[in-house]
């Protein structure tokens, strides 16, 4: 069976005053229905640009090349009105900051009803009914009253629930969640993640979960793609990623996790900062920060993703070193 979402060779470039910035540089990934793919990486690595490219929500200054297939439809180059018909119906997205993601002057109920009526020609009463069920399904108490609330009358967790209800109201086949819990406190985070997991099974949607939190990845995902500076450096099942990480960047991420260091010891960190995407270095983009860097790493062409034991990794290191160092990074239990 073909994957529900299949992205290949995605290049997203922003035109800026200083020149083109290649935020996404040849990303390929795919998600099956009912599965969760996590995309991890630090800020500015192109996670969000990837998800916005799929949704077609990038500003005019961005150009998207490559292929994005949803089911049997190609989204790159699709006319605006056709893409619009898919957004909110076949694919939906929830965003990082629930505090600002709802329209502040419109009642929550009206915003949910709008999501229904944009795509379906149903009577107002029925849309209202669906909005109420939507709120109930995300665990909002007394949904009928809550329809009449304004966003500012709700807490952050409550608003994120509304966002989720709104995203799922038309039963999309693909749900993109862009750091859905980053702005929430820890207890609310867990509730929201549980909710996404439950609803995913219920709706049988494919989920693309963007996060920088490996804990969230371990808890939620079936597969993981690790991004660095606009490229995917490692793609693996969640078990493999934590048990046998292959890429030096992934090792750095794993050993940097708090809770993996002993008390009184400094937290491990990856030295240096990610390169500027305005003028990226040739070869492997992680080379300047890599402990295992070799001469071939600093020259084009950059290492391509190649698959070993089910894990795709973009690295010149030999298999033996990767196995040894990967085991060292994964020495402790996964978070």
């Amino acid at each position: 069976m073909a994957p529900l979402l299949s992205v290949s060779g995605l290049h997203t470039t922003f035109r800026t005053d200083d020149g083109p910035v290649g935020a996404v540089d040849g990303v390929s990934l795919s998600v099956d229905a009912g599965k969760v793919l996590g995309v991890v990486g630090e800020s500015g690595c192109g996670k969000s640009a990837t998800s916005l490219s799929i949704m077609g929500l990038l500003p005019r200054t961005a150009t998207v090349e490559g292929s994005i297939r949803l089911g049997d439809r190609e989204l790159v180059g699709m006319p605006d009105d056709q893409l619009r018909a898919l957004r909110g119906a076949e694919m939906a997205m929830i965003f990082q900051d629930p505090m600002t993601s709802l329209d502040p002057v419109i009642r929550v109920g009206a915003q949910l009803e709008e999501a229904v009526r944009i795509h379906r020609d149903v009577p107002k009463q029925e849309a209202r009914e669906m909005a109420m069920k939507g709120l109930a399904s995300v665990g909002i108490p007394s949904p009928e009253e809550r329809l009449r609330s304004y966003p500012f009358e709700m807490s952050g967790g409550m608003r994120q629930r509304v966002m989720i209800a709104m995203a799922l109201i038309n039963r999309p086949r693909l749900l993109i969640a862009d750091e859905p819990t980053t702005a929430l406190d820890v207890t609310t985070q867990a509730q929201i993640l549980d909710l996404i997991r439950d609803l995913r099974t219920e709706v049988d949607a494919a989920v693309l979960l963007i996060t920088h939190d490996l804990g969230v990845v371990a808890e939620m995902c079936d597969e993981v793609a690790v991004m660095y500076a606009g490229r995917i450096v490692e793609r693996a099942s969640v078990d493999d990623l934590f048990a046998r990480p292959q890429h030096p960047y992934t090792w750095g991420l794993l050993t940097s996790l708090p809770g993996r260091h002993r008390a009184g010891e400094r937290l491990h960190q990856i030295p240096g900062t990610p390169p500027s995407l305005l003028n990226p270095p040739p070869g492997c983009r992680f080379a300047p920060r890599c402990d295992f860097v070799m001469d071939s790493c600093r020259a084009d062409p950059a290492p391509a993703l190649s698959t070993h034991d089910g894990t795709a990794v973009a690295c010149h290191l030999d298999a033996a070193t990767r196995a040894r160092e990967g085991a060292r990074a994964a020495r402790d239990d996964a978070p």
């Binding site: 949704m55 929500l57 619009r84 018909a85 898919l86 957004r87 909110g88 119906a89 939906a92 997205m93 965003f95 900051d97 600002t100 993601s101 709802l102 329209d103 502040p104 709008e114 999501a115 944009i118 795509h119 966002m163 709104m166 995203a167």
Partner: peptide, 14 residues
């Protein structure tokens, strides 16, 4: 440039 405008677009609003 506000987030809620992006939300409206993500809903498929014209």
């Amino acid at each position: 440039g506000e987030d809620y405008v992006r939300t409206a677009r993500a809903k498929g609003a014209s």
